[in-house]
Nucleic acid binder design. Sequence first.
RNA 1: GGAGAGGUGGCAGAGUGGUUGAAUGCGGCGGUCUCGAAAACCGUUGUGCGGGUAUUCCCCGUACCGAGGGUUCGAAUCCCUCCCUCUCCGCCA
Length: 424
Amino acid sequence: MLDIKIVREDPEKVKRALKDRNLEFDLSHILDIDDGRRALIKKVEDLRAEKNRLAKEVPIAQKEGKDIGELVAESKEVGEHLKHLDGLLKEHEEELAEKIAEIPNIPADGVPVGESEEDNVEIRTWGKQPDFEFEPKGHWDIGTDLGILDFERGAKVTGARFTVTVGAGARLERALMNYMLDMHTGEHGYKEVFPPILVNEDSLFATGQLPKLREDMYAVTDDLFLIPTAEVPVTNLHRNEIIPAGDMPIKYVAYSPCFRREAGSYGRETRGLIRQHQFNKVEMVRFVEPDNSPTAHEELTAQAEAVLQGLGLAYRVVELCTADLSFAAAKCYDLEVWMPGMGGYVEISSCSNFSDFQARRSNVRFKGGDGKTRYPHTLNGSGLAIGRTVAAVLENYQRQDGSVSIPPALVEYMGNSTIIAAQG
RNA sequence: GGAGAGGUGGCAGAGUGGUUGAAUGCGGCGGUCUCGAAAACCGUUGUGCGGGUAUUCCCCGUACCGAGGGUUCGAAUCCCUCCCUCUCCGCCA
């Protein structure tokens, strides 16, 4: 959520941001509501002051044995007027809150302006794409042939885009989860949390999924939703809190399953593990002081990259342009892993700086060293999406005989196996 | 799911209609004292919004005692709905 003061004081900046995102938005309407709202606040508070004054006079007059009839009558009159204006004010405030919640975050300075994902900018690449002396297979074929990915039974048990991992496949999923969590807790200083995977609407509003992306999520009974990412529960851990000075910065890492309806995406990347309705992910979330967020963002991105490097997977880092930036993000790097079987790069991590956008929506503040209360900046990044990592390992480490060698870093997590052979 | 109790400032804990943003204690911050520290004593102690010839320290108004409504001239105090916590029972991985 943007600060209404910024919209009021620097509407040109907001207009530019919206234009860069290729959005049409009527700011003048918002400013009109805000003007009306502030005028009403003044009137309402003056009336309230008057009413408070009268109410205080009543017991005094009573003590002095005076007639309070006139005071009461006057107070009643003020009360009527107040009630009317208060109702109007409430309407203004609700409309303003609704409108301002629909404005996306302002892109950070330096974010490339673009019209579509075509305009994203490659920042760097890492690693060497493996050479094969044979035609590399897609991970769906590798996994199916080895008996470690079962797409058909996943579809039977639940439906399309649900997959069962079996034997060494299931173990690989678990190994990756532990490998990533161990790295981020052990080497990068994150505190591990294991959050609820059902969240309420307030939490989804705070991180920016609601109101816009309702259709992309699974709603269950009791007004709860399955989380699309651990970002939601973890970022909401401190909703409506003031973080004490000594507790900043905060670094959380969480494993969670993620659920996405992927409404409207049918037909795109449907094969294999790339676009599932349920997948596992390890997510890093940070709360930092505003000045530190650009540095923290680079650091967080490097920490996600460290996982790919540890696994020996070639990848590239792409900075999203204004058109591709998500609603709440001010700046975002995508990590795209090389998939030899698919013959292309696939997004495996998204590392974003949300500036104070989510903090405002969730009303998280922190006490600075100077004793002032301010909004922190929030950041998060996948470290990594596990399903896609399984796919990447299978494709990059496949061998001519159909088996898959296990990346050295994962051997200890795979019961010291070095190879995945066909399952019995 | 049933029965009961309860949600007050960082914490503990008063406060059942009247000048209460809220006693008291602890904690925190500042100071006095001390070579220094402790103790003692004194002072101070939240958040949001609006306004102000205040714009890195201020002043005025207003709101906030789980949330939202209601009664009243006036509500932390009374009424209603919801949420949460605790105890006991039931059920249960």
